[in-house]
Design a protein around this nucleic acid. Structure first.
Lengths: 135, 135
DNA sequence: ATGGATGCAAATATTTTGCATTTTG
DNA sequence: CAAAATGCAAAATATTTGCATCCAT
């Protein structure tokens, strides 16, 4: 009933390059943006590989993923503990924020309505200080 | 500097059919699902028109939109006041929930980090009582 | 050497747009 | 009758998959 079982991820140059790039960036980026940036710095990596590398990295909790209201999926290197994001609409700079109260509230509200196996998504958007000033 | 200015929406049969269908459904649906349902009940409406009707209805706050973590965009008839959704992962049944505390918390956290013009997205997922039992 | 990884092309899926025609107000 | 709306086909996006080849272990 289970899938063929993936196998242990290997350490490849491409995967390392994707992660290295993410380490240097402070904000979410799309697979396209990451691919372009890698090309620009001379790293030869295919777009398909960027997608697959991101999947693996998300799976390994090395990278976080998120979607804009528009649906665009973005990725970012981040800490492994559960948290939410405060993202700048202009420059995509991101601050990780913890919301213990929100977590428990969500579970409580869900329980009140008979829901179990609760999970949630939460993103906060705004205009950061730098971008507000530079306006 | 401004766009050609749209103009006032007109009342068309197709738009009415989309809204009528949404009135009968208790949960989020994709444009595709809505289009298929309309066809099945004999309403002749093009998929493109369903998309455009949904845009207009969302604009008029008659309909709410939301995305699954997978990125699928879904729509649902709902109340015009600000609220969040508690959605069943299995049947998509939806409960509107208010979260005043969350709203203020989001603004406060954002302000602490110098962010202005704050907005946020929040969705709660779980398995509803019916679906848990029928498992 | 074995099987995961890569990269290209092609396939999918989703949403938008051009445009001639129809319909609303 | 002017402008908005429709509905197709085609375009634009975004992401996935087939497959031969490559490379990490």
């Amino acid at each position: 009933m289970s899938q063929p079982t993936p196998g242990i991820p290997r350490n490849t140059r491409q995967r390392a390059e994707v992660l290295a790039l993410l380490e240097e960036i402070d904000g979410f980026r799309s697979p396209q943006q990451l691919h372009t940036a890698l090309r620009d710095r001379g790293a030869r990596v295919g777009l398909t590989t960027v997608y697959r590398a991101l999947q693996v990295l998300v799976e390994a909790t090395e990278v976080d993923t998120m979607r804009l209201p528009s649906g665009e999926q973005l990725f970012r290197r981040c800490s492994p503990t559960h948290h939410h994001h405060l993202v700048c609409r202009r420059c995509n700079r991101t601050v990780e924020v913890a919301g213990p109260a929100v977590e428990t509230w969500a579970v409580a509200v869900a329980a009140q309505h008979g829901f179990t196996e609760v999970s949630h998504t939460l993103e906060i958007f705004g205009c950061c200080a730098d971008c507000t000033g530079a306006r």
